[in-house]
C-alpha cells in the first residue's frame, strides 16, 4: 500500500502544515506497513524538498514548473491527481489550509475518491483509516471511514504535531507532469499580503476582542497585547459587522476556525457561534466583566473584571516578564 502526503509550500518555503501532514501520514504509514511518498509542487522547490526527510518521508516527488510558482486550482489538482495515479496511491493526506481546502475536492473528483475534510484525529482500525471530524461547528464529533478505493483526508492545521525533526534523509525524484494553458483556467495573478499582519488561522496565540470594547479605537490595547505576545488579533462577529475590524479577523462559525495554543477572549460573551470557531484552542483565557458570560464555561483561566483596566496591566506585566 502507498500513502501520498501533499506538502504545501508558498514562495518555495514549506508551511508548518506541510510537516504536520507528512508526520501524521508517516505514523499511519508505519501502522499500515505502507510506503510513504511526499509530494511537493511549485516553481523552484527542489532545494527545499530534502527537508521532508526529517519528518519521516523517505521518498519525495518534486513537480516543478515556473507556472506553478503561484497557486492554480486547476493545475495543482491535475498534478496531485496524476502523481497519485502514477504511484497508485491509495490514501492521500493534505492540509485543510486555504490551498488544501480549495484543491482537495477537485482531486477527489478526478480520482473518484471519498474525502473527509478538516480532520482532527486519524487512527488505524482493522487495517483501515478512521478519521475524527468535527461537525456542526464542533458541537458534534464524527468518526468516519472512507469506502472508495482511493481515500483522501485533509487535516485541520495546528492540530497535528509536526514532531521534532530527525536527521532522516529522503531521496528526491523529479517528476514531469505535462501542463498546457488549458490547465490554468483559474490562475492566481497576484498575492496581496496583509501588511505584516499575522493571520488568525496560522497564529499560535490569538488575542480577540468583542463588542464590550465599545469602539474600534479601543482595539489599540488588543493590538498592543497581541504584539507583546507575538500573537494575531481576532474579533467576534459583532465587531466585524459593526465595521470595527476587517472580516478576515472574524473567529467563529461564519468566520475562521482556529486552534491556537493560547486564545485570549476579551469582552466577548461567548455566543455558540463564536465558541464554534475557537473551542479547540489548547488554552483559553477569558476577560469579561460579566461572571455569567458563557465564555467562562470553556475558559481555562478567567478574570471577571473590566477589560479597560486588565488588558493594559496584562501587557505591562508580560513586557516585564518577557524582558521587552
Amino acid at each position: 500500500m502507498k500513502i501520498i502526503a501533499f506538502a504545501e509550500q508558498r514562495n518555495n518555503q514549506f508551511k508548518k502544515t506541510a510537516f504536520e501532514v507528512v508526520c501524521a501520514a508517516k505514523t499511519i504509514a508505519d501502522e499500515l506497513s505502507a510506503e510513504l511518498v511526499a509530494l511537493v509542487v511549485g516553481g523552484n522547490v527542489s532545494p527545499i524538498a530534502g527537508e521532508l526527510g526529517k519528518y519521516g518521508a523517505s521518498r519525495v516527488i518534486v513537480v516543478e514548473d515556473s507556472r506553478l510558482q503561484y497557486y492554480s486550482t486547476t493545475a495543482y489538482a491535475k498534478v496531485i491527481a496524476e502523481v497519485a495515479q502514477q504511484e497508485s496511491g491509495q490514501v492521500i493526506f493534505l492540509s485543510a489550509s486555504s490551498l488544501g481546502k480549495d484543491v482537495a475536492p477537485r482531486v477527489a473528483a478526478k480520482l473518484d475518491a471519498g474525502l473527509a475534510t478538516d480532520c482532527t484525529a486519524i487512527r488505524v482500525e482493522n487495517g483501515d483509516c478512521v478519521a475524527t471530524r468535527p461537525v456542526y461547528a464542533g458541537k458534534g464529533l464524527t468518526d468516519v471511514r472512507i469506502t472508495s478505493p482511493v481515500k483522501m483526508f485533509s487535516l485541520r492545521p495546528n492540530v497535528f504535531s509536526a514532531g521534532t525533526p530527525s536527521s532522516g534523509a529522503a531521496t528526491i525524484e523529479k517528476r514531469n507532469v505535462p501542463l498546457t494553458d488549458a490547465d490554468f483556467t483559474a490562475a492566481v495573478k497576484e498575492v496581496k499580503a496583509s501588511s505584516g499582519k499575522k493571520d488568525v488561522a496560522e497564529a499560535d496565540i490569538i488575542v480577540s476582542g468583542g463588542r464590550g470594547l465599545k469602539g474600534p479605537e479601543h482595539f489599540a490595547m488588543i493590538e498592543e497585547l497581541a504584539s507583546t505576545l507575538n500573537a494575531a488579533v481576532g474579533a467576534s462577529r459583532a465587531v466585524v459587522d459593526a465595521g470595527w475590524r476587517p472580516h478576515d479577523e472574524q473567529v467563529g462559525q461564519t468566520g475562521k476556525t482556529v486552534a491556537p495554543t493560547l486564545y485570549i477572549a476579551v469582552a466577548i460573551s461567548g455566543a455558540v457561534q463564536h465558541l464554534a470557531g475557537m473551542s479547540s484552542s489548547k488554552f483559553i483565557v477569558a476577560i469579561n466583566k460579566d461572571k455569567d458570560a458563557p465564555i467562562f464555561s470553556i475558559a481555562d483561566y478567567g478574570i471577571v473584571g473590566d477589560a479597560f483596566e486588565i488588558v493594559p496591566a496584562f501587557s505591562a506585566e508580560l513586557k516585564k516578564v518577557l524582558g521587552k
Binding site: A113, G114, L115, A116, V130, P134, V135, G138, K139, G140, L141, T142, D143, V144, R145, I146, T147, S148, S279, I284, A286, K291, F296, S297, I298, A299, D300, Y301, G302, I303, V304
Partner: peptide, 19 residues
C-alpha cells in the same frame, strides 16, 4: 463514500479557574 461510524458530543471541559 464517506461512512459515518459514530457521532458523539465533544467531552465537556472541566470548569476553568477564575483567577
Amino acid at each position: 463514500r464517506v461512512e459515518v461510524l459514530a457521532m458523539k458530543k465533544p467531552s465537556a471541559k472541566p470548569p476553568g479557574k477564575i483567577v
